[in-house]
């Protein structure tokens, strides 16, 4: 069975946010509420400063705590390993947001992060919280899988671009934008990454490029202590990807 996963090479990532922009466009996200974000960290004080960054989509956990806590099974996991939200079942309790260790879920009804409030500029119709001038074709929207323009009062998250990857040819090992046969099925953030820091493929296929990278470059997962087992791996030369905790930061 396919188990989709992503690999992000931190040695290549330049923090350019192309992935963030592509995800926002592909999935009709409001500014400041993209399912994918690059988090920046700085430690120390001038001149002894370190700047680091980390691109962060949903980890599509193997043991997703968001699925476990959802009282209505609105958050669910597909057979090919992707965690999705059924917008028709979500009650907006936000317990999944509390229970996600990676902070990647969004309730779109809060105060606007950026002015002007685009929900007022492009008002929605009740089923969609806003009516963006750019959005995917209607036939691709799928409320049962949390794909499309988010409705009011529900939670959303990265779908691994399920509207694309679920149409990929069966048994394919990798979805690579450089391969014309798989380009259309490649997640938007992977497809646009200028230094090719993102890879997408089948973690259950021993021949996949993602597995090869994880093995060769010692891929690691974030917050292993939670037991969530992310299906997103980071390459950082063998060490853990640097996500400085407040208490581990250099102070001078």
């Amino acid at each position: 069975m396919t188990k989709w996963g992503m690999v992000i090479d931190l040695d290549k990532c330049t923090g350019c946010q192309a992935c963030t922009t592509a995800c926002a466009m592909e999935n009709s996200r409001l500014p400041g509420e993209s399912w994918q974000d690059v988090l920046f960290y700085h430690e120390g004080t001038y001149p002894n400063v370190k700047l680091s960054w980390l691109p962060r989509p949903c980890m599509q956990c193997e043991n997703p705590s968001c699925v476990a806590v959802c009282p209505t099974k609105a958050t669910w996991k597909t057979e090919d390993g992707v965690v999705l939200v059924d917008w028709d079942k979500c009650i907006g309790c936000k317990y999944c947001m509390i229970a996600c260790p990676y902070g990647v879920r969004f309730y779109m009804d809060e105060k606007p992060v950026v002015q002007p409030d685009l929900r007022e500029v492009f008002p929605g119709d009740g089923n969609r919280i806003w009516n963006p001038p750019y959005k995917m074709p209607d036939h691709l929207e799928d409320r049962k899988r949390g794909i499309g323009v988010q409705p009011p009062g529900v939670v959303s998250k990265c779908t691994f671009c399920y509207h694309k990857i679920s149409k990929a040819p069966k048994g394919v090992a990798d979805l690579d934008e450089d391969n014309p046969e798989t380009r259309e099925y490649t997640p938007a953030c992977v497809r646009v990454c200028p230094p090719k820091a993102r890879y997408f493929g089948d973690l259950d296929n021993p021949d996949s490029k993602v597995n090869q990278l994880i093995a060769d470059k010692r891929g690691v997962r974030l917050k292993e202590e939670t037991g969530n087992k992310p299906q997103v791996y980071y390459l950082s030369g063998g060490g853990a990807p640097v996500v400085p905790g407040e208490r581990s930061q250099r102070t001078s």
Partner: peptide, 16 residues
């Protein structure tokens, strides 16, 4: 809650 009445059927019927 955004959808309190949905909770009345969606929770008991889905057995999470």
């Amino acid at each position: 809650l955004a959808h309190p009445f949905r909770a009345l059927w969606a929770a008991p019927l889905n057995f999470q």
